[in-house]
Amino acid sequence: MEIENFIPAKYFCEVYKVDASFVDSLKEYGLITIVVYEEIEYIEKEKLNELEKMIRLHYDLNINMEGIEAVSHLLNKIDTLQQEINALKSRL
């Protein structure tokens, strides 16, 4: 594990001013992956964008975990469809 690619989950919560329980819930719902290294929980820096999006959905739009899960699923689906559209367009 290359430590510079991760940030401690605790530090993430401090910086973004979110409850640790928020991160726990995201983990429970399988929306983020937490890596444990020497008994400290870490979040992948690459996933920060996604996490910020989830913070906005939860804290600003009042969307609960089930909602975030459904939204994430649908956004992934949109992304896949967009890629298919691009591939089909380039074949025309």
Binding site: V15, K17, L48, N49, D60
Partner: peptide
Amino acid sequence: RRSQTKFR
């Protein structure tokens, strides 16, 4: 609301 929060 989170004006002091560090954001990317």
